[in-house]
Design a protein around this nucleic acid. Structure first.
Lengths: 124, 124
DNA sequence: ATAGTTACTCATAAATAAATTAGCTATGGC
DNA sequence: GCCATAGCTAATTTATTTATGAGTAACTAT
Protein backbone atom coordinates (compact mmCIF):
# COMPACT_ATOMS: atom_id res chain seq x y z
CA UNK A 1 0.00 0.00 0.00
CA UNK A 2 1.09 3.51 -0.77
CA UNK A 3 3.57 5.41 1.35
CA UNK A 4 2.55 8.41 3.36
CA UNK A 5 3.80 11.79 2.42
CA UNK A 6 5.57 13.05 5.49
CA UNK A 7 5.49 16.67 4.43
CA UNK A 8 1.72 16.94 3.97
CA UNK A 9 -0.57 18.99 6.17
CA UNK A 10 -2.69 15.89 6.40
CA UNK A 11 0.18 14.01 8.02
CA UNK A 12 1.13 16.90 10.27
CA UNK A 13 -2.40 17.17 11.59
CA UNK A 14 -2.66 13.49 12.29
CA UNK A 15 0.63 13.51 14.16
CA UNK A 16 -0.40 16.61 16.06
CA UNK A 17 -3.56 14.92 17.27
CA UNK A 18 -1.85 11.65 18.11
CA UNK A 19 0.73 13.44 20.19
CA UNK A 20 -1.91 15.51 21.91
CA UNK A 21 -3.77 12.42 23.01
CA UNK A 22 -3.04 8.74 22.47
CA UNK A 23 -6.76 8.14 22.10
CA UNK A 24 -6.42 9.43 18.58
CA UNK A 25 -3.84 6.80 17.75
CA UNK A 26 -6.05 4.02 19.08
CA UNK A 27 -9.00 5.40 17.16
CA UNK A 28 -6.94 5.55 13.99
CA UNK A 29 -6.42 1.83 14.40
CA UNK A 30 -9.86 0.61 15.42
CA UNK A 31 -11.64 2.77 12.89
CA UNK A 32 -9.84 1.27 9.94
CA UNK A 33 -12.36 -0.79 8.11
CA UNK A 34 -12.74 -4.39 9.35
CA UNK A 35 -10.31 -3.99 12.25
CA UNK A 36 -12.89 -4.38 15.03
CA UNK A 37 -14.64 -7.11 13.13
CA UNK A 38 -11.45 -9.09 12.68
CA UNK A 39 -10.74 -8.74 16.40
CA UNK A 40 -14.23 -9.91 17.31
CA UNK A 41 -14.06 -12.79 14.87
CA UNK A 42 -10.86 -14.05 16.45
CA UNK A 43 -12.32 -13.58 19.91
CA UNK A 44 -15.24 -15.73 18.87
CA UNK A 45 -12.89 -18.55 18.00
CA UNK A 46 -11.95 -18.13 14.37
CA UNK A 47 -8.26 -18.87 14.41
CA UNK A 48 -7.32 -19.27 10.77
CA UNK A 49 -6.99 -16.78 7.96
CA UNK A 50 -9.54 -18.63 5.92
CA UNK A 51 -12.17 -18.96 8.59
CA UNK A 52 -11.92 -15.28 9.48
CA UNK A 53 -12.26 -14.44 5.82
CA UNK A 54 -15.35 -16.59 5.48
CA UNK A 55 -16.81 -15.17 8.67
CA UNK A 56 -16.49 -11.62 7.37
CA UNK A 57 -17.98 -12.29 3.93
CA UNK A 58 -16.76 -9.35 1.89
CA UNK A 59 -13.24 -8.79 3.20
CA UNK A 60 -10.43 -9.27 0.69
CA UNK A 61 -7.18 -11.16 1.22
CA UNK A 62 -5.16 -7.99 0.98
CA UNK A 63 -7.07 -6.14 3.64
CA UNK A 64 -7.37 -9.10 5.98
CA UNK A 65 -3.62 -9.69 5.83
CA UNK A 66 -3.03 -6.04 6.55
CA UNK A 67 -5.47 -5.88 9.47
CA UNK A 68 -4.05 -9.00 11.07
CA UNK A 69 -0.60 -7.51 10.84
CA UNK A 70 -1.75 -4.28 12.45
CA UNK A 71 -3.55 -6.01 15.30
CA UNK A 72 -0.52 -8.16 15.92
CA UNK A 73 1.78 -5.15 15.87
CA UNK A 74 -0.28 -3.49 18.57
CA UNK A 75 -0.28 -6.67 20.65
CA UNK A 76 -4.01 -7.29 20.47
CA UNK A 77 -3.63 -10.67 18.80
CA UNK A 78 -0.89 -13.28 18.54
CA UNK A 79 0.19 -15.23 15.52
CA UNK A 80 1.45 -18.81 15.60
CA UNK A 81 2.99 -20.23 12.44
CA UNK A 82 3.20 -23.95 11.75
CA UNK A 83 5.60 -25.01 9.04
CA UNK A 84 3.39 -27.44 7.17
CA UNK A 85 2.09 -27.80 3.66
CA UNK A 86 -0.24 -26.16 3.00
CA UNK A 87 0.89 -23.62 5.60
CA UNK A 88 -1.05 -23.25 8.81
CA UNK A 89 -1.26 -20.09 10.88
CA UNK A 90 -3.33 -19.58 13.99
CA UNK A 91 -4.39 -16.30 15.52
CA UNK A 92 -5.49 -15.82 19.09
CA UNK A 93 -6.60 -12.79 21.05
CA UNK A 94 -4.33 -11.53 23.83
CA UNK A 95 -5.28 -10.19 27.24
CA UNK A 96 -4.81 -6.69 25.93
CA UNK A 97 -7.02 -7.57 23.01
CA UNK A 98 -9.74 -8.77 25.36
CA UNK A 99 -9.53 -5.50 27.22
CA UNK A 100 -9.93 -3.55 24.02
CA UNK A 101 -12.78 -5.77 23.00
CA UNK A 102 -14.67 -5.11 26.22
CA UNK A 103 -14.21 -1.35 25.83
CA UNK A 104 -15.59 -1.64 22.33
CA UNK A 105 -18.51 -3.63 23.68
CA UNK A 106 -19.38 -0.71 25.94
CA UNK A 107 -19.26 1.64 23.00
CA UNK A 108 -21.41 -0.75 21.05
CA UNK A 109 -24.12 -0.80 23.71
CA UNK A 110 -24.02 2.96 23.83
CA UNK A 111 -24.20 3.28 20.07
CA UNK A 112 -27.40 1.27 20.05
CA UNK A 113 -29.08 3.80 22.32
CA UNK A 114 -27.83 6.67 20.17
CA UNK A 115 -29.08 5.50 16.86
CA UNK A 116 -32.74 5.48 17.75
CA UNK A 117 -32.48 9.23 17.53
CA UNK A 118 -31.05 9.40 14.07
CA UNK A 119 -33.64 9.03 11.40
CA UNK A 120 -32.22 10.74 8.36
CA UNK A 121 -29.02 9.49 6.77
CA UNK A 122 -25.99 11.33 8.00
CA UNK A 123 -23.73 12.40 5.20
CA UNK A 124 -21.34 15.27 4.73
CA UNK B 1 -17.62 17.81 0.09
CA UNK B 2 -17.86 15.19 -2.61
CA UNK B 3 -20.78 12.78 -2.89
CA UNK B 4 -20.36 9.11 -2.19
CA UNK B 5 -20.69 6.62 -4.97
CA UNK B 6 -23.51 4.34 -3.87
CA UNK B 7 -22.54 1.56 -6.25
CA UNK B 8 -18.97 1.12 -5.06
CA UNK B 9 -17.69 -1.89 -3.19
CA UNK B 10 -16.23 0.53 -0.74
CA UNK B 11 -19.70 1.85 0.08
CA UNK B 12 -21.26 -1.62 0.17
CA UNK B 13 -18.66 -2.83 2.64
CA UNK B 14 -19.11 0.15 4.92
CA UNK B 15 -22.89 -0.31 4.90
CA UNK B 16 -22.51 -4.02 5.52
CA UNK B 17 -20.42 -3.37 8.61
CA UNK B 18 -22.65 -0.61 9.90
CA UNK B 19 -25.69 -2.83 9.63
CA UNK B 20 -23.90 -5.70 11.25
CA UNK B 21 -23.06 -3.61 14.28
CA UNK B 22 -23.87 -0.01 15.10
CA UNK B 23 -20.47 0.28 16.74
CA UNK B 24 -19.05 0.69 13.27
CA UNK B 25 -21.26 3.68 12.63
CA UNK B 26 -20.21 5.34 15.87
CA UNK B 27 -16.57 4.62 15.09
CA UNK B 28 -16.96 6.11 11.63
CA UNK B 29 -18.03 9.29 13.34
CA UNK B 30 -15.56 9.57 16.20
CA UNK B 31 -12.62 8.55 14.10
CA UNK B 32 -13.06 11.34 11.62
CA UNK B 33 -10.22 13.70 12.21
CA UNK B 34 -10.82 16.34 14.91
CA UNK B 35 -14.24 15.00 15.94
CA UNK B 36 -13.24 13.86 19.43
CA UNK B 37 -11.12 16.93 19.91
CA UNK B 38 -13.97 19.25 18.99
CA UNK B 39 -16.21 17.40 21.42
CA UNK B 40 -13.65 17.67 24.21
CA UNK B 41 -13.01 21.32 23.47
CA UNK B 42 -16.70 22.12 23.84
CA UNK B 43 -16.90 20.04 26.98
CA UNK B 44 -14.06 22.08 28.42
CA UNK B 45 -16.08 25.24 27.91
CA UNK B 46 -15.24 26.55 24.46
CA UNK B 47 -18.61 27.62 23.19
CA UNK B 48 -17.86 29.65 20.09
CA UNK B 49 -16.65 28.69 16.65
CA UNK B 50 -13.67 30.93 16.98
CA UNK B 51 -12.55 29.78 20.40
CA UNK B 52 -12.78 26.13 19.38
CA UNK B 53 -10.77 26.93 16.30
CA UNK B 54 -8.09 28.65 18.34
CA UNK B 55 -8.06 25.83 20.85
CA UNK B 56 -7.38 23.25 18.15
CA UNK B 57 -4.59 25.19 16.42
CA UNK B 58 -4.46 23.57 12.97
CA UNK B 59 -8.13 22.90 12.20
CA UNK B 60 -9.58 24.74 9.20
CA UNK B 61 -12.92 26.55 9.01
CA UNK B 62 -14.27 24.03 6.55
CA UNK B 63 -13.50 21.02 8.67
CA UNK B 64 -14.59 22.62 11.92
CA UNK B 65 -17.94 23.61 10.41
CA UNK B 66 -18.39 20.09 9.12
CA UNK B 67 -17.50 18.42 12.41
CA UNK B 68 -19.81 20.69 14.39
CA UNK B 69 -22.63 19.82 12.04
CA UNK B 70 -21.97 16.11 12.40
CA UNK B 71 -21.82 16.23 16.18
CA UNK B 72 -25.03 18.22 16.25
CA UNK B 73 -26.74 15.81 13.89
CA UNK B 74 -25.94 12.92 16.19
CA UNK B 75 -27.19 14.86 19.20
CA UNK B 76 -23.86 15.09 20.98
CA UNK B 77 -23.81 18.89 20.98
CA UNK B 78 -26.40 21.63 20.70
CA UNK B 79 -26.21 24.78 18.68
CA UNK B 80 -27.76 28.07 19.78
CA UNK B 81 -27.90 30.89 17.25
CA UNK B 82 -28.18 34.54 18.25
CA UNK B 83 -29.24 36.95 15.53
CA UNK B 84 -26.74 39.70 16.10
CA UNK B 85 -24.09 41.41 14.05
CA UNK B 86 -21.58 39.94 13.82
CA UNK B 87 -23.43 36.68 14.35
CA UNK B 88 -23.03 34.73 17.55
CA UNK B 89 -23.40 31.00 17.86
CA UNK B 90 -22.90 28.95 20.98
CA UNK B 91 -22.27 25.24 21.19
CA UNK B 92 -22.84 23.15 24.29
CA UNK B 93 -22.42 19.47 24.98
CA UNK B 94 -25.56 17.39 25.59
CA UNK B 95 -26.09 14.61 28.10
CA UNK B 96 -25.55 12.10 25.36
CA UNK B 97 -22.37 13.91 24.44
CA UNK B 98 -21.14 13.67 28.01
CA UNK B 99 -21.80 9.95 27.94
CA UNK B 100 -19.80 9.56 24.78
CA UNK B 101 -17.04 11.66 26.21
CA UNK B 102 -16.74 9.46 29.27
CA UNK B 103 -16.58 6.33 27.13
CA UNK B 104 -13.82 7.96 25.14
CA UNK B 105 -12.04 8.84 28.35
CA UNK B 106 -11.96 5.15 29.24
CA UNK B 107 -10.50 4.33 25.87
CA UNK B 108 -7.99 7.08 26.35
CA UNK B 109 -6.77 5.68 29.64
CA UNK B 110 -6.50 2.27 28.04
CA UNK B 111 -4.63 3.61 25.07
CA UNK B 112 -2.00 5.08 27.35
CA UNK B 113 -1.24 1.65 28.77
CA UNK B 114 -1.07 0.17 25.28
CA UNK B 115 1.38 2.55 23.75
CA UNK B 116 4.22 1.80 26.10
CA UNK B 117 4.49 -1.45 24.18
CA UNK B 118 4.80 0.05 20.77
CA UNK B 119 8.26 1.25 20.02
CA UNK B 120 8.57 1.21 16.27
CA UNK B 121 6.31 3.35 14.11
CA UNK B 122 3.28 1.49 12.87
CA UNK B 123 2.72 1.93 9.17
CA UNK B 124 1.22 -0.25 6.46
C1' DA C 1 0.52 -34.04 -15.56
C1' DT C 2 -2.61 -31.19 -13.38
C1' DA C 3 -5.45 -29.10 -10.08
C1' DG C 4 -6.10 -27.87 -5.41
C1' DT C 5 -4.48 -26.26 -0.96
C1' DT C 6 -3.28 -21.88 2.62
C1' DA C 7 -1.71 -17.68 3.75
C1' DC C 8 -0.10 -14.57 2.07
C1' DT C 9 2.61 -10.28 -1.34
C1' DC C 10 2.80 -6.95 -5.07
C1' DA C 11 1.31 -3.37 -8.31
C1' DT C 12 -2.25 -0.75 -9.62
C1' DA C 13 -6.84 1.46 -9.87
C1' DA C 14 -10.85 3.41 -7.75
C1' DA C 15 -13.06 5.76 -4.12
C1' DT C 16 -13.02 8.75 -0.36
C1' DA C 17 -11.38 12.04 3.14
C1' DA C 18 -8.92 16.14 4.22
C1' DA C 19 -7.04 20.55 3.08
C1' DT C 20 -6.95 24.92 0.37
C1' DT C 21 -8.81 28.96 -1.56
C1' DA C 22 -12.22 32.01 -2.30
C1' DG C 23 -16.29 34.16 -1.08
C1' DC C 24 -20.74 35.62 1.44
C1' DT C 25 -23.75 38.04 5.09
C1' DA C 26 -25.15 42.48 7.34
C1' DT C 27 -23.83 46.08 10.29
C1' DG C 28 -20.76 49.23 12.95
C1' DG C 29 -16.59 52.08 13.16
C1' DC C 30 -13.36 54.94 10.65
C1' DG D 1 -16.93 54.18 0.73
C1' DC D 2 -14.01 50.72 2.84
C1' DC D 3 -12.59 47.48 6.06
C1' DA D 4 -13.41 44.33 9.90
C1' DT D 5 -16.23 40.94 12.14
C1' DA D 6 -18.11 35.61 12.99
C1' DG D 7 -19.55 31.76 11.19
C1' DC D 8 -20.07 29.76 7.85
C1' DT D 9 -20.52 27.37 2.20
C1' DA D 10 -18.85 25.85 -2.40
C1' DA D 11 -15.51 24.35 -5.63
C1' DT D 12 -11.26 22.42 -6.27
C1' DT D 13 -6.84 20.04 -5.31
C1' DT D 14 -4.10 16.84 -2.72
C1' DA D 15 -3.45 12.87 0.12
C1' DT D 16 -4.77 8.64 1.70
C1' DT D 17 -7.48 4.42 2.11
C1' DT D 18 -9.71 0.60 0.14
C1' DA D 19 -10.37 -2.72 -3.43
C1' DT D 20 -8.86 -5.64 -7.51
C1' DG D 21 -6.41 -9.04 -9.87
C1' DA D 22 -2.57 -11.57 -10.35
C1' DG D 23 0.97 -14.45 -8.52
C1' DT D 24 3.93 -17.34 -4.89
C1' DA D 25 5.63 -21.83 -2.22
C1' DA D 26 5.65 -26.66 -1.89
C1' DC D 27 3.35 -30.43 -1.24
C1' DT D 28 -1.08 -33.80 -1.89
C1' DA D 29 -4.75 -36.02 -4.15
C1' DT D 30 -6.64 -37.26 -8.73
Amino acid sequence: MAERKLSSTNYRNQSFLEEKCSLNELLDLVSKRWVCDVLFSIEEGNKRFKSIKEDLTFISDTILADRLKLLERYGFIERAYFDEVPPRVEYTITEKGEELSSLLDNMCKFSETVHQYITEPVRL
